[in-house]
């Protein structure tokens, strides 16, 4: 038993019962709500000669938060970036195996990577708003999609900013530069911007690691809220955070997937010794 996390998880379950009911208990896949959104099979990944991922086979359930944890360099970020093919832009990167998004192999040569990334959005560790106005940042995705109608854009911007819990703070300064916002606001803006392309999946690479505790809490609440409509995969170094926001947790170590299970399970009764050692702080 790992008492330090049971408290966090008990609090989470008490305050915010999972959106789709607890009746699912611990059985993965015995509810239609837990059908996999993304599946990977024997996924291997190479940076040049160096292999960074080894035979990753796992599934990411739809409309849930799946956390990827593990020590630095364990491959969790690399894995995340194979899911929207962001690794394509890295020189010398090579992928073997399959990544299925709703059954379609995204590494099939006929797959349009631009279309893929519209469906699989991403939020980065370092907030990276464009040096444009708040409005133009959120409107970016719809605009490259060809939308020019100012009224429609405004509707989208407003609804995305509301979903990202930022509207109240920026509604009067939509024309201001996004770079004038605080760090936490910038990160929520990036989330709003990602939502504006209407993705089904949101990949988050340590989205709160550069934020202060108050901003982190806001982003975490937001993630917990967003899981109702989006499939979220979040990489985090912060295990408390994984325990707070995720339904499922996957533990990566040295490029391998050691264990994936319900978050409650991972943090209270991990099956693997390595997982237990990591989350109890014995290494990493």
């Amino acid at each position: 038993m790992l008492p330090s996390f049971s408290k966090v998880i008990a609090e989470k379950n008490a305050n915010q019962p999972p959106a789709h009911g607890t009746q699912v208990a611990h059985g993965v896949g015995d509810s239609p709500l837990h059908i996999p959104k993304i599946e990977t099979r024997d996924l291997n990944f190479f940076y040049g000669q160096r292999q960074a991922l080894f035979n990753i086979t796992m599934s990411v359930p739809q409309r849930n938060v799946t956390a990827l944890i593990g020590p630095s360099g364990c491959g969790k970020s690399t894995f995340l970036r194979t899911l929207n093919r962001m690794n394509d832009i890295v020189d010398g990167a090579r992928v073997e195996g399959t990544v299925l998004l709703e059954g379609i192999d995204i590494y099939n040569p006929n797959v349009d990577v631009v279309a893929l990334r519209k469906r699989v959005g991403m939020v980065f560790q370092k907030s990276n708003p464009f040096p444009k106005s708040v409005f133009d940042n959120v409107a970016y995705g719809p605009r490259i999609g060809g939308l020019t109608d100012r009224r429609k854009l405004m509707e989208i911007v407003e609804s995305c900013l509301k979903r990202a819990a930022l509207w109240e703070e920026v509604s009067h300064r939509l024309k201001d530069s996004a770079l004038a916002l605080s760090g936490g606001q910038q990160q929520r803006l990036c989330i709003a911007r990602a939502l504006a392309t209407d993705p089904e999946v949101l990949l988050m690479d340590e989205p709160a690691s550069a934020l202060d505790p108050a901003s982190t809490a806001r982003v975490e609440d937001l993630i917990f809220e967003l899981r109702r409509n989006y499939t979220i995969v979040i990489v985090t170094h912060n295990m408390q955070q994984a325990a707070r926001v995720s339904e499922y947790t996957a533990f990566f170590f040295q490029g391998k997937l050691i264990e994936i299970d319900k978050t409650d399970q991972i943090f209270t009764k991990p099956k693997e010794k390595e997982t237990e050692d990591y989350i109890t702080g014995r290494f990493g």
Binding site: M86, K118, N128, F130, R143, I144, R193
Partner: peptide
Amino acid sequence: QGLREAGLALGSTKFDVSVRIILPA
């Protein structure tokens, strides 16, 4: 590089990224 990645992750083509993000920036 973060701006390029942000643009690509939003489903931009390279041309979109060049013209709408990199050049203005």
